[in-house]
């Protein structure tokens, strides 16, 4: 039995060969984010509104810095996967959709790496 639609046959794009990869990555990052969010939130919330030296000292701790880096990396990957689904669901125009997906990939990657760099710099210079 052929499950491919007329449109797919005409476009000749075939399977994306990714299978359940997106679904699975969304779950893996979700599971990782449960302990990471729990460990990240309190030191971070306590640093907001604190003075510079206190905030710097918090992230001079290797544990807090590593948790923060893992949290930022995983959260932005999870965010990228989630926003991708939202874009694919609601934006019908092919061109607009492609541009939005591209912007999503570029911005989430850029912010994740900027965050990691900032945390590392704080941890190393404190």
């Amino acid at each position: 039995m052929n499950f491919r639609t007329d449109r797919q046959r005409v476009q000749g794009l075939g399977s994306a060969k990714e299978g359940t990869g997106h679904f699975w990555q969304q779950r893996v990052t979700a599971i990782a984010l449960v302990p990471l969010a729990l460990l990240f939130i309190l030191p971070y919330a306590r640093s907001l509104g604190a003075d510079f030296a206190t905030a710097q000292e918090t992230y001079a701790s290797p544990f807090n810095a590593i948790v923060a880096i893992l949290f930022i990396l995983t959260a932005f990957r999870h965010l990228q996967l989630g926003l991708q689904v939202v874009i694919e669901d609601y934006i019908q125009n092919h061109g607009t959709r492609t541009v939005c997906l591209l912007i999503n990939t570029l911005l989430t990657t850029a912010f994740a790496l900027a965050g990691v760099f900032a945390i590392a710099k704080v941890a190393f210079s404190a």
Binding site: Y44, F52, A55, I72, G82, F111, A114, G115, A118, I119
Partner: peptide, 29 residues
């Protein structure tokens, strides 16, 4: 989920402020 994109970006800016030094930290914080 979409809303927390804003929180995530704010968090990165907060860490960048901390990385740049006391003055920028004051502004961001």
């Amino acid at each position: 989920g979409i809303g927390m994109a804003l929180a995530a970006v704010m968090t990165v800016f907060w860490f960048l402020g901390l990385a740049y030094g006391p003055e920028s930290f004051r502004t961001v914080d």
